[in-house]
């Protein structure tokens, strides 16, 4: 079996197959369907300072080869996360990455400091600067280089754990946001978050999502994710975690060839919460049948025509 281990910051991950924030709950929802300890990491659902109910329904709709969601960061809040979830993670061997969302820099800092002040096995933080579904949400950070740099810097100075900035595709230049994250001390970037989208039912003449616009995910956005990862790989020297439309081992290989060192499986979890285990096996088979000695050897090695 090929070696799938990878190192990011000072953390060693068993394999590059992670599950994406918001698509896997807190990691404990479907124990009958998935052995989470086989995953490289679980990125838990975005946590905010206070609990959040989320948006009114309808919150989701299927679209061609994808879906649009506008959940609105429904979550238990950081206090319950610390009290109820952190103790559960002690018994898991998979790595836990906590995803954090805030409305201003102070809120991100407060959440991170609350978690840092207790002992836990958390490997790091993924910073949601790009949720499209919350008014006054993280989007302003995700589209602005200076704000991204300030936020990254503020969090960097407060933790030795991994800091991963999650980038939005809904920007004019994703590379400059990635660069700002790197320069301010981020250990890695993950790309992409969902693409702003809309779905309309012609028959009824109505929008299918309460908030009108939502986040498009699934295989429909894989080409957008691949392009973002490839562009980031040309300019950045920190690891990139690829996200967007991954449903099988071949998709993972494509993201790795584009420049991703690890990937996150998202929407596919909704169809089958155990799909990441299948994807891991498929990746192992793919590598063993390929010319690549290991997963790491593939990273960024796509042959382009120019």
């Amino acid at each position: 079996m090929s070696d799938l281990k990878l190192t990011m910051g000072n953390i060693e991950f068993d394999n590059p197959i992670w599950v994406a924030s918001g698509t896997f709950g807190y990691g404990t929802e479907a124990p009958e369907l998935v052995d989470v300890n086989r995953l490289g990491a679980i990125v838990t659902k975005s946590i905010t300072r206070q609990p959040r109910e989320g948006n009114p329904p309808p919150r989701i709709v299927e679209t061609p080869s994808g879906m649009i969601n506008s959940i609105g960061l429904a979550n238990i809040g950081v206090e319950r996360y610390i009290k109820e979830m952190l103790p559960i993670y002690e018994s898991l061997t998979t790595k836990i990455i906590m995803n954090i969302a805030g409305t201003d820099i102070q809120e991100y800092i407060e959440i991170l400091e609350m978690v840092e002040s207790v002992s836990s096995v958390i490997a790091g933080y993924e910073i949601n600067i790009s949720c499209p579904n919350v008014k006054k949400g993280g989007m302003e950070f995700g589209v602005d280089c200076d704000m991204t740099a300030k936020l990254t810097d503020a969090l960097r100075s407060r933790t030795d754990r991994l800091i991963i900035m999650k980038l939005s595709p809904n920007v004019s230049d994703i590379v400059s946001i990635g660069q700002a994250s790197q320069d301010a001390g981020a250990d890695a970037v993950s790309a992409i978050n969902t693409v702003v989208g809309m779905s309309i039912s012609a028959k009824t003449g109505t929008s299918d999502i309460y908030t009108t616009y939502g986040g498009l995910s699934g295989p429909a956005i894989k080409p957008v994710g691949l392009a973002a990862v490839h562009k980031l790989y040309q300019k950045l020297n920190i690891p990139i975690i690829g996200i967007g439309g991954i449903v099988n081992g071949q998709d993972v290989a494509e993201y790795m060839l584009a420049g991703a060192q690890a990937v996150q499986v998202g929407t596919a979890n909704f169809r089958n919460p155990g799909i990441s285990e299948d994807i891991l096996s498929q990746l192992e088979t793919f590598i063993s049948e390929s010319k690549w000695p290991s997963a790491n050897d593939m990273v960024g090695q796509v042959k382009t025509h120019s």
Partner: peptide, 27 residues
């Protein structure tokens, strides 16, 4: 309308009766 059916996506909500009282709450 459901995304997953097992609680992962948080998509299939229905309002509870008299549910608005809580300011910062979850479910």
């Amino acid at each position: 309308y459901m995304g997953c059916g097992v609680g992962l996506c948080q998509g299939c909500v229905i309002p509870r009766q008299n549910g608005e009282i809580q300011h910062h709450s979850y479910h």
